[in-house]
């Protein structure tokens, strides 16, 4: 995936059974963002693979004050890339469950 400066990782082990997963996001390279992020914290949140979109979560992070609105696309892309990887991995490892 492209290096967006925003890192997203699983916050729990994925067994491929739940549609909701816990993710953790943090800024690795603030220089890649247009605005100043709120702080250096890691933001943990849940994401429903079947019902939600990365754009929804990114928008909620902007509205919650974590990022400037000009960074909504880069945050959404960072989440989207990780979600795509998780879904690809699920289909490869547990095809019968998907």
């Amino acid at each position: 995936a492209e290096d967006t400066g925003v890192r997203v990782e699983l916050a729990e082990e994925d067994h491929g059974r739940k549609s909701t997963i816990a993710l953790r996001l943090w800024v690795e390279d603030p220089k890649k963002l247009k605005g100043k992020p709120k702080d250096n914290g890691a933001i943990e949140f849940t994401f429903d693979l079947e019902r939600e979109t990365p754009d929804d979560v990114a928008q909620e992070m902007i509205e919650s004050g974590f990022f400037h609105e000009s960074d909504v696309k880069i945050v959404a892309k960072s989440i989207r890339d990780r979600v795509a990887l998780i879904q690809w991995r699920r289909k490869r490892i547990w095809p019968a469950l998907q």
Binding site: D29, N40, G41, A42, E44, F45, T46, E60, S64
Partner: peptide, 27 residues
């Protein structure tokens, strides 16, 4: 505790914790 919880109006919870130094990229 160093954890901070932010709840968005749509109901999603964001839990913020410090990033370990080892996870931050060296510049």
């Amino acid at each position: 505790s160093s954890l901070t919880q932010v709840v968005h109006s749509a109901g999603r919870r964001f839990i913020v914790s410090p990033v370990p130094e080892s996870r931050l990229r060296e510049s």
